[in-house]
Design a protein around this nucleic acid. Structure first.
Lengths: 194, 194
DNA sequence: CATGTCGATAAACCCGGGTTAATGTCGCAA
DNA sequence: TTGCGACATTAACCCGGGTTTATCGACATG
């Protein structure tokens, strides 16, 4: 089931129909604010967004990026009704469709197809988180950066260095040093190979 | 549904009955070896185990601990049939029950109760991983250690310093220094308060 | 008893990355 | 044109943690 088919299916479902809302968010605006409670499942139709934490020292750390045709939300809010520990902020103008989690859950309970979809979705999320845990645990900042360039090649052109740095857990200054190291190693490598 | 009821329910299920295996593993033995393919869902009935990566430099990083009455396995193996990127190693003697993932999935497909159980289980796993991601991204090693002491208070007495260090992503030497800092701060604090 | 092993700690040294502040470079608006 | 603000980079300095090596105690096992 592709993204558009999923949305059509959900909006047509009797458990959901009428409870969905569409919204437009301008670049830099927040879809969810850290501390807010938002039980919606959010379908990003267009744009680019980040989930990020702001620490009490005021530093921002990005936990994930979302491009058009992806599904977002705070599990902590949806499942536990607790305030979100992070924000969702638009890096570009965003169009979203929001559906309350309990409606989605109800629709899924009556549809093996939907249930299977969200079951798989959860498992995909788990796999991604496992990968990220591995990278923080076992890799250096430079390795994490170089993997990022490969794994996120499709969105790298839409990001600033500061955003990439924040995602891999270092400061923009440290990332700049890493990029310098890589460039120097590259030119040495080329020279050495000649 | 508690752990024992779950196991009884699964073993009685027509999709599973007969495919389950029990096994005993001695302390230090491996239930899953990094690189192996093991599609089983593993129910730890007794003992204590760790999931860990060994990097190509030979360093071991622990990604999680499991106590008696928990459910383990490599999603990567179960879902994708790929070799496990980590090992499961016994920190104490362990008794386990192993059931092939596809049997469990089949049983769940025919039982709303089971499906709901595993759906919730996945969501709980996601919440834990999200917490861990937050801690690596936003907290210092010392903060991670102090949170660990609280969150894992029930198993701390069963672990060595080296295991705790490996879990929070530092060397045992660094952890020793952190413990020294904390002790010094404590005694200063007490002295200052008097 | 002697030896070996493991866990925890310590000292010395090095390096990656954080911090602060300065510089350069765009693009944009007054 | 000037000036301003966002972004990337650099230098200088500091500190946390990695690395290596050594010490010490607690427990085996010979």
């Amino acid at each position: 089931m592709d993204f558009c088919a999923l949305i059509d299916r959900l909006c047509a479902d009797p458990a959901i129909a009428g409870s969905e809302r569409t919204a437009h968010y301008a670049k830099s605006s927040q879809i969810i604010r850290q501390g807010d409670i938002c039980r919606d499942v959010i379908f990003l139709q267009n744009g680019l967004a980040q989930m990020s934490y702001v620490t009490f020292e005021g530093k921002e750390w990005i936990k994930s990026f979302f491009v058009e045709e992806s599904v977002m939300g705070s599990r902590r809010c949806q499942l536990l009704g607790e305030p979100s520990t992070f924000s969702i902020i638009c890096l570009e103008d965003c169009d979203v469709l929001a559906i309350p989690y309990d409606r989605v859950r109800k629709a899924a309970a009556n549809s093996p197809t939907l249930l299977a979809f969200f079951f798989d979705f959860n498992e995909q999320v788990s796999l991604r988180k496992e990968k990220r845990e591995y990278e923080f645990l076992c890799l250096s900042a430079q390795d994490r950066y170089q993997r990022f360039l490969v794994d996120y090649a499709h969105i790298v052109p839409r990001l600033t260095q500061a955003q990439i740095a924040s995602f891999i857990g270092i400061t923009p200054i440290a990332l700049s040093r890493i990029r310098k190291r890589i460039n120097q190693a590259d030119s040495l490598g080329v020279a050495g190979a000649q």
